[in-house]
Design a protein around this nucleic acid. Structure first.
Lengths: 334, 334
DNA sequence: TAAACTTATGTAAACGTTTACATTATTAAT
DNA sequence: ATTAATAATGTAAACGTTTACATAAGTTTA
């Protein structure tokens, strides 16, 4: 059906080896021959058979991206970042989220055991033992996004959560003048959440502010969770004058509660988030939050992975930390 | 490196043909042999080489999804839908959005010419001549999401925009009692936008409401566009009492302007959108909008494509229209 | 018990490339 | 003009499967 190099060889009166060399622009092919072959290939609308090429090269030019769920803009941005880099280097990306019918482990196993992808990028908030072992034992190159640095023979890219949380807390203190800053944490096993919490603690300490345990509330990174946490905080007898929600969605949950109580943001109570999702700019007042370069997370992971695929073990392991910045909204005084 | 069927054959003292048959659970293999072979495969941690298999089967079990840009939850949901169906049928999905470095045509060409994917799902708001020809001439099965039915030898899935727009306009009239309903349209070449506009017109006509050209404003499906359109409408001497924005993002733009002017939604002016994006439930008052089953769009397209891949031309062309529903928010009176 | 099936296995080709090695044609060096 | 070096091309194997066809082994049937 599809023309093959055999067909081209016949028409050009050369061997298939020469055709292959010509089409791949290898050296040692007379220019005339090369031109002729390319012309014929063009005429026949020739396209190389990828499977055949993969078979001999033992590469597929495909990278896999494993994530818990394709949802929310965060992952979307990361996907975009990976895709751009992949495309630029001649790779394709297969996205595999886990869902009702497929577990993360299953996906990962599939990607790593079969000679199906050249490398895998994994972005999961909490790496459990099983996943850890899977990754450590993998012959396929892996890059992990945003996990705790507990797998050290693997390249990683992550957000500097500590720095982000530290600076926004510091900002709330130094610039806005808040003194009683509460925090709504993220899920307990979530590494990002942990690091953010630590940044918050350090900032308080460095500013000689005592940590008040009543103002440290567990959250779950959902809006509902934000609402509940916020209403707990606002009904305390000694209530905080600012709330640092460990992600934007929870911060938006706070907005709801605060508005319902007829309080003013940022005068009665300041609010800050983390992530800088689009929504944070849609709401009023605009949310003060931490900008996370989501797409960059993807591009960096992509670069690292492709480098690893192409250079193998000659390159040493990289642990990349991507810094964040503050988005100065109006949900905090200034 | 990786064990092959050859290695298994050697250990089991059989030919590679038998191994292949045993592993693929084909008939005509003695049960003892089958069990033995499978045991050895297991021990060796054997995984079939996909490239080799693809080479002979001339299939890759990969489907491509082409979209203009991975952005916003709409596409995300569709991706999720496709992924689920694909996975269920043993396929993988490669997502290729166009971006700075890659045009839609380029992506499409890449997918359709090479024997790289078994089928392609295309979701682009406006199919131009070049794309049309590309699709019509494709030997690779294609399913188009949400485009005008102008390519008839291809399966399509689309939202019933007309019905959605008709019913929400009708709702604004019949249930909310609005009489002066303006519309903010979508981009001129966008097919969804056109159909929505037609639904609006029909609903007015069927309710014996005269169409007022001043209340028909061009929009562009962006928040900013919604703001501008809204402020134009609200400064008219004869201003509408309700606005139907052809997508939610523009409706949210309207909220901004209306709030700024100190007007009340839904009493001074009603607002309705289209798409039912998450955001529509975050804002207050909750937006009255048209629910679009985004994930279903993906699953249906996936099913159609895989069916086409596996059944070939024996199955006749399907043009599927997916109905929508109204989300009764508080941005309209009731 | 031979003939006729059926079942189980093997042989070898095919899929479409790439590439090591061999060969021939061309150019440079003496 | 002969030899040496280089450039261009060809030959054939290899990649790891699947599968048509051939063969061997086992089971009915008359």
């Amino acid at each position: 059906m599809n023309p093959t190099i055999k067909e081209i060889a016949k028409r050009a009166n050369v061997s298939i080896a020469t055709v292959s060399r010509a089409l791949n622009d290898l050296s040692n092919v007379k220019n005339d021959t090369k031109v002729l072959i390319k012309k014929i290939a063009e005429e026949l609308n020739y396209n190389p058979n990828i499977a055949a090429r993969n078979l001999v090269s033992k590469k597929t030019q495909i990278i896999g991206f494993v994530l818990p769920e394709i949802e929310g803009e965060f992952y979307t941005e990361v996907i975009k970042g990976i895709d751009k880099v992949a495309y630029g280097s001649g790779y394709h990306m297969i996205v595999a989220s886990s869902h009702s019918e497929r577990s993360i482990v299953e996906t990962l196993t599939n990607f790593m055991k079969r000679n199906f992808v050249d490398g895998v990028i994994v972005m999961i908030p909490a790496v459990n033992q099983q996943v850890k072992e899977l990754i450590e034992g993998s012959r396929v190159p892996v890059v992990i996004i945003n996990a705790k640095n507990e797998i050290d023979n693997v390249d990683t890219v992550s957000i500097d959560n500590y720095q982000g949380a530290y600076s926004i807390t510091n900002y709330l203190i130094k610039n806005s003048g808040y003194k009683k800053i509460a925090i709504i944490k993220g899920p307990a096993q979530n590494n990002d959440a942990l690091e953010r919490f630590e940044g918050y603690l350090s900032a308080l300490t460095d500013n000689n502010i005592e940590v008040n345990d009543n103002w440290i509330i567990e959250g779950d990174f959902t809006m509902k969770g934000g609402e509940l946490a916020c209403s707990r905080l606002l009904t305390l007898s000694d209530r905080p004058d600012a709330i640092f929600a460990c992600n934007d969605i929870m911060a938006i949950g706070c907005y709801k509660v605060i508005n319902n109580l007829g309080l003013n943001i940022p005068d009665d109570i300041g609010v800050a988030g983390f992530d800088h999702i689009n929504l944070s700019e849609f709401i009023l007042p605009h949310l003060t939050t931490v900008h996370v370069p989501k797409e960059e997370l993807g591009t960096e992971a992509g670069k690292l992975l492709i480098d690893r695929i192409e250079k193998g073990d000659t390159k040493e392991i990289t642990h990349l930390k991507i810094s964040t910045g503050i988005v100065f909204g109006n949900s905090s005084k200034n």
